[in-house]
Design a binder for these strands. Sequence first.
DNA 1: TATTATTTTAATAATGGTTCTCAATTAGCT
DNA 2: AGCTAATTGAGAACCATTATTAAAATAATA
Lengths: 131, 131
Amino acid sequence: MASLKYSRQRESIKHFLMTTREHPTADEVFMQVKQDFPNISLGTVYRNLNLLTDIGEAIKISTPDGGDRFDGRTEPHNHFLCKKCGRLLDLELDMKSIEEVNQLAAENFDGLIESSATLFYGECSDCIKKS
Amino acid sequence: MASLKYSRQRESIKHFLMTTREHPTADEVFMQVKQDFPNISLGTVYRNLNLLTDIGEAIKISTPDGGDRFDGRTEPHNHFLCKKCGRLLDLELDMKSIEEVNQLAAENFDGLIESSATLFYGECSDCIKKS
DNA sequence: TATTATTTTAATAATGGTTCTCAATTAGCT
DNA sequence: AGCTAATTGAGAACCATTATTAAAATAATA
């Protein structure tokens, strides 16, 4: 396994992921990190996002619409996708609840359940106000 | 809104989705339906899969690896993705449990939660046997 | 500090999944 | 049958992501 060598670009990507509450796409990360590294290439962003995901320092979230999103919060938590505005928000469900769901699922299932990710759908509060 | 007109291709796609327990990709649907309609084009498959999804007669499942998958079972249910073999399986969690999770989530959330989809991860029984 | 080895980068080409375009066909009226 | 709108097949176009490669950056060693 190749050893990991420091890079300022990767550090910047990780820092951005950890400080934003949004769930940016690779392209959004690219545009942000570009402010510090004008020459950074999109490939570098993808490479590092995948690397961070692989070593457990980021999470990749797939939604039915559009490209994958990335999250620097790695503790188990869930997400909400607004059907109207398309924003992806954090949704708190305490650890205990998540584990209960996993356990409940395990009851009717042969294999080994290690984790789960629930994506909730509906209308966010902002969109409700506007309608 | 455009009205819906019957097409044998769409019927065949829907029939295949409803009779398989797998969760095929668009390309797998394409290859299957091709046996009845040798000239069908991949675009037609995509168009109809999206149409069926829009009118609630199919579900689109996004996973972190590879393309979207489609499911003809539209009642709320969940899925399991095996980290080893990559198979996507149905996972039963009764309606009551699903609603309980949605309700639990709603407690700490401002917006309106209409539905949810949980994807479980782990190792399926077949892969466990082999190891 | 200078040298060397290995990783990472930037740029860009290539890929794969999905959507779009459009002329020809078909379904559902009257 | 004739008209209109929806659907199709074919292929181009699109977009997100991955792969390639020579040059630059980093880490290890002397």
